[in-house]
Write a protein that binds this DNA or RNA. Sequence first.
DNA 1: TTTAGTTCCTTGTATTGCATAATACTTTAT
DNA 2: ATAAAGTATTATGCAATACAAGGAACTAAA
Lengths: 137, 137
Amino acid sequence: MDLENAKAQMRKGVLEMCVLAVIAGRETYPPEIIGKLEGTNVLVKEGTLYPLLIRLKNDGLVDYIWREGVKGPPRKYFTITENGRKFLEELTDSWKELVQAVNQTIEHNASTDVGEAFSTDPGAPRPLHIEPLPPDA
Amino acid sequence: MDLENAKAQMRKGVLEMCVLAVIAGRETYPPEIIGKLEGTNVLVKEGTLYPLLIRLKNDGLVDYIWREGVKGPPRKYFTITENGRKFLEELTDSWKELVQAVNQTIEHNASTDVGEAFSTDPGAPRPLHIEPLPPDA
DNA sequence: TTTAGTTCCTTGTATTGCATAATACTTTAT
DNA sequence: ATAAAGTATTATGCAATACAAGGAACTAAA
């Protein structure tokens, strides 16, 4: 079963927003971003994050400067831009709409109300003859 | 800017779950599925839905039978299987976890607390020298 | 019966974005 | 010098939907 795959697919669409949100919180650099997201159960790999950051940079949503740390090689510290903030707001709005829509779908259809399929719900399609055509066609 | 694109990307990961949820609600056929999802602001095209249904069928998560309607050509009515229900439960659990994680990320980083970047938060990385290396390197 | 129109289903190509994995570069420690 | 750790980069491949066009079954009207 590919539940893991499905979870990964769900993550995909929101990764950009999450990364942008983390950067919006305060200036930060890639390994720290990965750590923060891991903390909230959203896993990202380096090879996923760097290309994403480059895209955000090219779109003018984030910016970066090099800084030396107390240890190790210099780091690319990312900050969010004006446009980045605006875009993040739009993203989160869309996100909340989607969450609402999906929850509505899930909960509205959660029950096993099979009995109603052919009785109530006038607007529903009315299968007349009950049996199949050539099941192989 | 590609906000529409971003929204589409978000939809991608949850489409499978939504379609499964609709079918779980009661036996239904493709155009009706599209209508229901449109009703909750989740847009799907035929060319997207049919391949998805085939995949679900091949994975044993849904099944279908042909039925004649009062008008028009016969329809493929889809039902959810035992495995489909189990899988849907796992999907919704993952979905709820993801929503929680994302909301946490968004809200925790929502404020513009730039001032704290170099003062509080002891666990945070400490940029020591303030200025960049070769900004072009 | 032929034509047009609806409804439903199918298929192929393109695009997008992440996963995986390997690699290079910079500093620090031994 | 050499090894080790931390940081950044790149290449290849896969999964899933968007888009667009078309085909098949039925109905109704001329």
